[in-house]
Computed example of a mutant assay.
Amino acid sequence: MSLDLPPPIAAYVAANARLDADGMLIPFAADAVVFDERERRVGKAQILAWIQSATIASRAVFTPVAWRQEKGVIVVEGPTTGDFPGSPIPFTFRFTLENRAISALEVG
């Protein structure tokens, strides 16, 4: 099923499905910010480290099932499956896009 996600988000999701850390990083702006597990990561180096530890290490794959726009934020929902306790777990990803890149991502 295609959700017709905005291109930077679609690229992130497609790379995640392949567990391709470098591909997941490409859609982020150089100064992007990621908020996950009460931690803030800024810039591509910190975001790549987060991708490696939070996604690649546990083989976590997010499968979007719905998305909507709320006050300039793209909210994407779906399960994440992988090698971690409780898998699959429902997640909500809140993306902010600027200049055709992900400028912020909040994972919840």
Rank of each mutant, 00 (worst) to 15 (best):
1 M>C: 12
1 M>G: 13
2 S>G: 14
4 D>Q: 11
8 P>A: 05
9 I>V: 13
11 A>L: 10
11 A>K: 03
12 Y>G: 04
13 V>A: 01
17 A>S: 14
19 L>D: 07
20 D>L: 05
22 D>H: 15
26 I>N: 03
27 P>D: 03
28 F>D: 03
29 A>T: 09
29 A>K: 06
31 D>L: 08
35 F>N: 01
35 F>D: 01
38 R>V: 13
42 V>E: 12
43 G>Q: 00
43 G>F: 12
44 K>G: 08
45 A>S: 15
46 Q>S: 11
46 Q>I: 06
48 L>Q: 09
49 A>L: 14
52 Q>I: 07
54 A>E: 04
56 I>A: 06
57 A>F: 10
60 A>M: 10
66 A>K: 10
66 A>R: 09
67 W>Y: 10
69 Q>T: 14
70 E>C: 15
70 E>R: 08
73 V>T: 09
76 V>D: 07
76 V>H: 01
77 E>I: 04
80 T>L: 02
80 T>H: 08
80 T>C: 15
82 G>D: 02
85 P>C: 07
87 S>M: 10
88 P>D: 05
92 T>G: 07
93 F>N: 02
93 F>K: 01
93 F>E: 04
96 T>M: 07
97 L>K: 07
98 E>A: 15
98 E>F: 15
100 R>Q: 14
101 A>F: 13
102 I>E: 02
102 I>G: 01
104 A>P: 00
104 A>F: 08
105 L>M: 08
106 E>Y: 06
107 V>D: 02
